[in-house]
């Protein structure tokens, strides 16, 4: 696709490159990069919505406060519904995950933005921290009884060992699917949008067609950004439920 002079170059993956903000070629552990910038913006967005929005503490909420209350109530209700009331003590952690993923996804849709959640490094750390926390929590709360999660009592006895193997495999696949689902959805959408945008630049007068396609795709991506944040959070709740109540 890329030619020498770059005019027809469609480089859908360039947007995902991690690069230092203030010069230099190497990306060290503490280098301030575009990752730093967009994560900082995510923090600002979360603060704006959750702290500034609710600063009035109004009994009858303003618009900003309604949004903060809506986000609070949405996740609170989700935890309550999925894990039961005893899952609510993990509310701040799950809220952190949801807020981060949600705003990272949404901010990534701004043109020229860097989408932090399109990187496996980020989603894998999130998914692994959920996986490790939930597994440790399961053993701490239930002891060895946590292993009954893999022993399906309702199945015929002969099938149980086979099912146990399947359950264990599926348990360990969880962080993989959990992280790749999010990063894959983000990366694919942004790459496709970039490809269409590249067509628009290359097609001349017929640019209308890819622009319309990008517009439609953008709406879809907005939906995907929200849904993936929702899916990531609700899966976290589902895994948490297994740790709290390992019996089928």
């Amino acid at each position: 696709m890329a030619d020498a002079n770059g005019s027809l170059a469609i480089r859908p993956m360039d947007q995902f490159v991690v690069r230092p903000l203030f010069g230099g070629e190497t990306v060290g552990m503490f280098t301030i990069t575009n990752v730093t910038l967009w994560m900082a913006l995510t923090v600002l967005a979360v603060t704006a919505v959750m702290v500034l929005g609710a600063r009035g503490r109004a009994l009858v909420p303003t618009r900003g406060q309604s949004v903060a209350e809506l986000a609070y109530g949405f996740i609170y209700k989700m935890i309550e519904d999925v894990t039961g009331r005893d899952g609510l003590r993990f509310f701040p952690y799950i809220m952190t995950i949801f807020m981060f993923v949600f705003f990272a996804n949404i901010l990534g849709l701004i043109p020229w933005a860097f989408t932090t959640t399109s990187h496996f490094a980020v989603t894998a750390v999130l998914a692994l921290s959920v996986f490790i926390s939930v597994t440790v929590l399961g053993f701490v709360l239930n002891g060895a009884a946590f292993l009954r999660l893999f022993w399906v009592d309702s199945a015929p006895l002969a099938l149980r060992p086979i099912l146990a193997v399947i359950e264990i495999i599926s348990y360990f696949v969880r962080p993989v699917s959990h992280s790749i689902r999010l990063a894959g959805a983000m990366m694919a959408g942004h790459a496709v949008a970039k490809v269409f945008a590249g067509f628009a630049a290359a097609l001349g007068v017929a640019f209308v067609v890819p622009v319309l396609a990008v517009t439609a795709l953008y709406a879809l991506e907005l939906l995907v950004a929200v849904i993936q944040a929702y899916v990531f959070t609700i899966l976290t709740c589902v895994y948490l439920k297994d740790a709290l109540h390992p019996h089928h």
Binding site: V18, M29, M39, V43, V51, T96
Partner: peptide, 26 residues
Amino acid sequence: PNQIFWLVVTLVVIYLILSRVALPRI
């Protein structure tokens, strides 16, 4: 390493903002 470092910083900051200020207030 760079991404993971900044992610951890970000998550800790968001967690502190939410658990110390935003969530108790709301």
